[in-house]
Design a protein around this nucleic acid. Structure first.
Lengths: 102, 102
DNA sequence: ATAATAAATGAATTGCTATTCATATGAAAA
DNA sequence: TTTTCATATGAATAGCAATTCATTTATTAT
């Protein structure tokens, strides 16, 4: 897969920082600094991760003065998250250790 | 995310070998060697990847003689794949280079 | 024009995931 | 009960992705 859109697409959900960003934007669009504060991560780290998310169209961006406001592509993101939640509820009722480890 | 079920869950779709396995099992259940031949990957590599997929309940396994038959959890896997296809069609109509690279 | 604020970028490095290779286990056939 | 077939497993390494840190770019206010 390496070098395909599938790989990049799923990496956006597999990485903690990226998923934190996605969850942070569920409620409403935010600027980079607002995201940074909300998820408690350094600005440049957030920016790098935003870029990947935006490249895959998981996020949209809109300039507003010197700020850049990022918003979630809910159609895709919420659909994906819903499936996982459903999957976990059905298949991992006890949150087994195996799942948590490796 | 590291150390959570979300991380592991999505890594199963982000990795080429694992996704190849998933796609190989869309049609029908297969033994390890059958998968190995179908996707043209070494047996131990396949086994390692099967383990991760099974741990996350993306696959089920059933013993049959000395063989082990793996089958796809279609409810989850197909749902996920459908969303991605839809997403790509809608957002990446030209399969832009950005998406393919990094 | 300059300073201040907001965010992006590049390069180096860290850290983790995936693969590889050798070996072990387990079931069935001879 | 030994061999063979099918698969799993462990440990070392290879190969990436993510983070960090310093710097740059862009916008607005003074």
């Amino acid at each position: 897969m390496k070098n395909t859109s599938y790989h990049n697409f799923f990496m956006n959900f597999a990485n903690k920082t990226k998923l934190d960003i996605i969850l942070a934007l569920k409620e409403k669009p935010l600027s980079v600094n607002e995201i940074s504060e909300k998820i408690n991560e350094e600005q440049s780290k957030v920016s790098h991760n935003l870029k990947a998310l935006k490249t895959c169209h998981i996020l949209d961006m809109e300039r507003k003065g010197k700020k850049r406001i990022y918003s979630l592509n809910k159609e895709t993101a919420l659909a994906i998250l819903n499936i996982v939640e459903k999957h976990v509820k059905k298949n991992c009722p006890f949150r087994c250790e195996k799942c948590k480890k490796k």
